[in-house]
Simulated assay, not measured.
Amino acid sequence: MKTARKPRMAHGRAATARQAKSAAIAKAKAVAPDTPARIGATPATKFRGNPDIFGRLVEDHDRHRALLAMIAATQGKSPERKRLFNEFVREVKGHAAAEEQALWSTVLRDPPTTEDARHAVAEHHELDEMMADLAARDMGSSGWLRRFAKLREEYLHHVREEEQEQFVAAEKHLTAADVRYMRQVFNRRKREEKAEAKVEKKIKLKD
């Protein structure tokens, strides 16, 4: 009995997705080439490798997944941990601000997707607070590692929800021209926002 073959188009999409993921990890690795970036399997998403705003956002998500894995692989107050954490903070701040301007500002105007946009933006602010708290604490302490593990969990939950739910819902209310144009806006704003991003330090009084 012959094994059924996947359609060539599906195989091509899978290869494109793998290439996009590998390229995103390579960008993270450039920050600390000797630190492993073992992100393992990632949640299923139809957007990885797409030439539109959603594919571009997933590209950043994979880069951030790699940075988180690399931070977790560092030790104490090492220069690598500090460099990777600072890069993660600046990456996420630039990404979130550009995402809000390119995508969510438009989605907020459409009643069926308003709640998704508000939810995503609210989680961006929560992540900002968690990163500022970590930046203000001793990187070599067990408390820092515990808080970092919580940040990692929250961030991975946030991007999984975006990729599997919120982007899917938003796409239904956007035209092909919209999503292509949004990618251009995102790329421009991401460069500008990341260049201006600061690693703020502020202890959270409540965990």
Rank of each mutant, 00 (worst) to 15 (best):
K2D: 15
K2E: 15
P7I: 07
R8T: 15
M9F: 15
A10Y: 10
A10E: 15
A10P: 06
R13Y: 13
A14I: 12
A17I: 08
R18E: 12
K21G: 12
A23N: 09
I25N: 06
A28L: 03
A30N: 13
V31L: 10
A37H: 12
R38I: 12
G40R: 07
A44I: 11
K46N: 10
N50D: 14
N50Y: 10
P51S: 12
P51Y: 09
D52H: 04
D52I: 06
V58M: 03
E59Q: 09
E59T: 09
E59M: 05
D60M: 07
D62A: 10
R63V: 02
R63M: 12
M70G: 07
M70D: 13
A72K: 13
A73C: 07
T74S: 07
K77Y: 02
P79T: 01
E80H: 05
R81A: 01
R81Q: 04
R81S: 00
L84G: 03
N86T: 10
N86H: 08
F88P: 00
A96D: 00
A97M: 07
A98I: 01
A98D: 02
A98S: 07
E99Q: 09
E100I: 01
Q101A: 11
Q101H: 11
Q101M: 13
A102D: 04
W104Y: 05
S105A: 08
S105P: 00
T106L: 07
R109H: 07
P112T: 05
T114I: 01
R118T: 06
R118A: 08
H119A: 12
H119N: 09
V121W: 00
E123C: 03
H125G: 10
D128V: 02
D128P: 06
D128Q: 07
E129V: 05
M131G: 00
A135D: 00
D138A: 05
G140C: 00
G140N: 08
W144Q: 09
W144S: 05
W144A: 03
L145E: 15
L145C: 09
F148S: 09
L151M: 10
Y155R: 11
H157K: 11
H158Q: 09
E161D: 11
E162N: 08
E163K: 02
Q164I: 02
E165L: 11
A169W: 06
A170K: 02
H173L: 15
T175Q: 13
T175D: 12
A177L: 11
A177K: 14
V179A: 13
Y181V: 14
F186L: 07
N187I: 01
R191Q: 08
E192M: 01
E193R: 06
E200G: 11
K201R: 13
I203K: 15
K206W: 14
